[in-house]
Each structure stands twice: as C-alpha cells, then as structure tokens.
Design a binder for these strands. Sequence first.
DNA 1: GACCCTTATGGCAGCGCTACCATAACTATC
DNA 2: GATAGTTATGGTAGCGCTGCCATAAGGGTC
Lengths: 333, 333
Amino acid sequence: MVNGNATLADVASLAGVSVITVSRVVRNLGPISESTRQKVNSAIAKLDYVPNKAAGMLASAESNLVAVLLPSLSNIVFPEVMRGITEGLRGTGHQPLIGVTDYDPKQEEALLTSFMSWRPVAVITTGFEHTDTTRRILSSGRFRVAELMDIDSQPIDLAVGLSHRSAGQVTARHLSDLGYRRFGYVGHDWTADRRARLRYEGLVEGLTERGLSIVSETLSPGPSSTQAGKNALATLLAKGAPPDVVVFSNDDMAVGGYFQCLAAGIEVKRDLALFGFNGLEIGQCMPMPLSTLLSNRFLIGKQAVEVLLSSSKRPEDTQTIDTGFEIIVGKTA
Amino acid sequence: MVNGNATLADVASLAGVSVITVSRVVRNLGPISESTRQKVNSAIAKLDYVPNKAAGMLASAESNLVAVLLPSLSNIVFPEVMRGITEGLRGTGHQPLIGVTDYDPKQEEALLTSFMSWRPVAVITTGFEHTDTTRRILSSGRFRVAELMDIDSQPIDLAVGLSHRSAGQVTARHLSDLGYRRFGYVGHDWTADRRARLRYEGLVEGLTERGLSIVSETLSPGPSSTQAGKNALATLLAKGAPPDVVVFSNDDMAVGGYFQCLAAGIEVKRDLALFGFNGLEIGQCMPMPLSTLLSNRFLIGKQAVEVLLSSSKRPEDTQTIDTGFEIIVGKTA
DNA sequence: GACCCTTATGGCAGCGCTACCATAACTATC
DNA sequence: GATAGTTATGGTAGCGCTGCCATAAGGGTC
C-alpha cells in the first residue's frame, strides 16, 4: 500500500538483511543470491518503497540530470530538437531538466544558475550567444556542454547543428542556378535569432559570388510566424521593385508568404517564387510543396545527447558535428 | 573562481560565521544584520558557492519539482500547454520535470514511477486514461495531481480543460444552423487520442438532436498531421456519398483538408465546407481562415499550475476547471 | 534591577542514501 | 592443509543541508 515513505532501512528490516544489501538489489549491483533478492523485492513491494533520489544524489555526488535550455516552445523547431534529446536520453537513466529562455541571454543565465544547484552531468543550450557569466559557468569543466543548432563558431565543448552561413550560400547558388535574378528577402527579428541573420549573410555572399544582390527586403519585428510572413510579404510587394523570387527566414514565414500569394491571386513560381528554410511538414503538404532547405532538428538533439553521454569528462579538444542540410526542390521555386 | 565545489561550511568559515547563518542568508530567512549579510555574500561570491539542491531537499524533505507528463511534443498543442505551465511556474521557485509518454499509458506509468523518486510536489498529466498502478500512485495523496485537457470524467484531484463531448455537440449545432445537412468526418487514431473520440461522439449526439447524421467518414491510422488530413479527405471524397461539410478531428487535419481542396480544385465552402478544432495560428492565416473551435491550451497549463501551487495539500473535494472553447466563424464553413 | 521582548546568531542531530572497507563462508590450487 | 581467489553480506562514516532548540546582547517597562 502507498503509505508514508518507506526507507531503505525499513525494507532492510522487513527483509531481514542490511540496508546496503537492499541498496544493491535496487541498483542491481554486485553479487546477490537469488533468495535474498526475492526477500528484498517482496519487502519493497509490500512497503511500496520508492528510492529517494535526493539522498542517493547527495551520497554518490552524481546526478542523472541533463539541463536543457531552449529559446522557445512556440516555434515547432525546438520541440522537435527536444524530441531528439528525449529519444537520445531514453534508456540511459538520465532525466532532462528543461528551461525556456525566450531568446534572452539574461534569462538563459538565470536558468543556468538555478540549474547548477542540481549538479547536472551535462548542459545543452542553443547557439553561441551567452552572457559572460553563462560562458564562465559553462567553461568550468565540471560537466559536458553542447551548443546546438549552429556550427559557425567555436564551441565551448561540443557543437551540433549546421552551418547557417553555408545554408544561405547554398540557397543563393541553387536559386541562381534556376535562373532567378531579382531576389527578395522576408525575415523576422534578427536580434533574437542570430541564425536567421547568418543565413541572410550567407545568402548575400552567395549572391555576390554570382554578381547578384537583394533588390528588396522586409524584416518583420518579433518572432517568426505564419502571420508575420504573410504580412511581411504583402509589405514587400507593396514597395515596388518586384523580385522574381523571395527567400524567407524560415518555413513558417514562407508558408505565410504562400498564403499571401493565394489571397492576392499571385501565381506562385510563375509570378513569384518562394523559398524557405527548415523543411517543416506543413510546407510539404501544400498543394505546391514548398521549396526549402531541410534541417535535421530531431537528429541534432539526438546526436548531441549521444556524444555528451559517451564520456562524462570533457575531452581536450572541442568537437563540432555537422548534421547538414538538404535542398528540397519542391514546386514553389 | 569556479573551483571544485564550495559548501556552506566553506562559506561560513571564510565569512567567520556559522553554517546556519549562511544558510539563512542564502534562503533569505530570519533576521540577519546588514554587516553579516555582506560578509556572507562576499564569501559566496569569492568561493563561487552554488547551493546543493539534493542536500537541501533531503534535509527539508520537500522538493520544488512539478512532474509533467505530456503525450507528445510533435503536436504543437502540447508545447503550448507546456508554455502555460512554464508561465505559471515562473517566479514560484518551482521546476518542471518533463516526460513524454507517446500516448502510451504503460509509458506514462514508467515515467511516473521514476519521477516519484524526486518527490515532486505536484504531478500534471493528460486525460483520464491511466493504468491501475498510475491511478494508485496518483491517488496516494502525497502530492497534488492535475489531469489536463479533458473535463468529461471525474478527476483524481483537479481537472483543467474543456468538455470535448460538448465541443462536438456545439460544432453539430453550429453547422446545422448554418444549413449544412450532409456531414462528413475525417479523423485520426482514436485509441491514442480519447478526446478526439469524445468530440466525435458529441458531434453525433448533436446531429442526432437535429435529426441528422454522418453520411461518410474516414479514420486515418496513426497520429494527426496535415498530411494525414490531406490524404484522408481525398479518400473520403473518393468514396462517393459526397458531404456538404466535413468536420475534422483537429486543425492539423483540417488544414490538410484545405490543401487537398486547393489541389483538387474544389471550391471550399461553396462545394465543400471544412471545420476543425483547436484554433491554431496556421488555420487563421490561410487565405480563407479556417472555421474551427478555439481551445485555450496555454490557459489550461497556466491555470493548472496556479491551482496546484495554491495549496500543497489536496482538498477534500475534487475540482474541475472549465477553460471553455469558442467558435471561430472563419470562412471555410 | 528583575522582567520581558526583540534581534541576531550558533550547536547539533539527522534526512536517506552510497562509498569504502571489512568479514565470512566457500571452492580451487599446489 | 595452508594460501589464495570467489561469492555474498554487513558496519560505519559521511554527503551538504535544514529543523529544532538554545543563547546572547540590547533596549524598554514597572
């Protein structure tokens, strides 16, 4: 029955063995005879014994916690990364401790500081933009650190993601190969989302290589969303200097752009081509599948966990894992 | 400097006070003179002291953890609930401990069992479908329990959500008031998503009231998705017995249905009306905003936390909070 | 000056568990 | 039959913190 709170000692005295033997049975450690194992297990069942992690953690000085700092839950990309993290953690006995930073380095610092009290074995965070304090804590070397999504800078310990600069360049080359010449850009707030800016910079570099440039652009304040993409494309088109292709900061924005074209009677691709980033499901379900770049969000989370848990000590050298990206040709460009 | 691991005792000896005084400064408890507070704080800073939650939890026998069991992270609805939970937790000093059940009661039981080792002050879970063991643990009374999303059954402690049966009925009445007579239904796997089934049952009841019924339906196996909605609508329409309106199990599915109509040249509303459930952003951005029912996911999470934390003891009586729903008229029905 | 109240501080036990070291009963080896 | 290696078990000392109870100093009151 579920009573107060049985302890190891209670189980031990009921089973007629010592506490340490019970502890060994619970943790499946060392040699235990079949008969004592059974006595102990039946005592555990009878008392509804539940181990106390706080006590175990204090005594062994090691936790099974992995701190995860995500910028947002509103953007489906991060829940997908989280799915990968959860999948990587499955069966390892580790628990994620999740915090949402709202893209704010100060908030990240506050969460990290509070997470430190849990003595996590690893910290997973996003991007390379941290406060000095955050950086100092992450550099302490007492736990593994992964910085996800982006591999365009030098990580503290491990980076897993893709080169957003290179993604921008590839986008430029791909679209210029398809014959597009007048490029528009529709984006969202860069101050919070550095990776969107890196893709933009890569795009400009790639265009410059081909002697091309962006003829018109609109930046929507605030986070990316379908609505923001829809409105921002309308704004862009109202400006004049019509482009023949618009690159969006991501698929959410691009789907909004597609809706705007439908609503305004613009024939997509013939009149105006659209290109996104991420390869979300929604874009691929549209009557014209969105032309975009696939990022591997799930894989990023999963790989990060696998590497972090492979060794509890930080290696001498930092490591960067490129999960890559892939052009989805689609039908909108 | 970030050194090994300073303890309260280290701080105390550097500051020239007792450990308990340092503990009080850290926890901001009891009367402390300004001068000792400063001495202690500077010692904390010098040693980079970080409290050890495991030790604190063990000594005080109380945690600041809230266990959260979500069915999925792929469906944006649950990250939105999670946002509400996070928001409700902000500033309370509580930490969420998140687990993903994949809609599987066995998985829920396994996660809950492991979470019990952390002695959470509250457990937040989804729906009323639990294994016997889960139910027994949740009924122990040692912590608060919230069952989210659904209020169509008797909760263990607290239920926060909406009546899905009633949502289905309201949908039926609304659409019949609009003049629709031939109802189609497109849904996803019911065994995992009991709430979708409740809405369906409510829909049928509401139609029966008006002497109407469902003339054609398609259930897609597996979870809901835009792609599934698109395919399932195509299947439904290929069957013959064409409906004049199709009710979808949720907005994801309905957006897929909308895309199918666009692709197949079906004029939405004139030829075929569409109705969803949830009121997701994406549906409202479409050239024709989706006609649907708004559920308040964020609010469900936030309210649940607020009630749970208002009292650490479970009240005598169970409580049910109806966060309601609202018809979004839209343009697709 | 005996009394009480307030403000500030400390001593000590113990939360439930695990690490470390021991011990005891066997079997195997020469 | 003495030594060594297995297998199975136990004793004890903490891990770092907080709860409880005490204590001491200062000031006001009669």
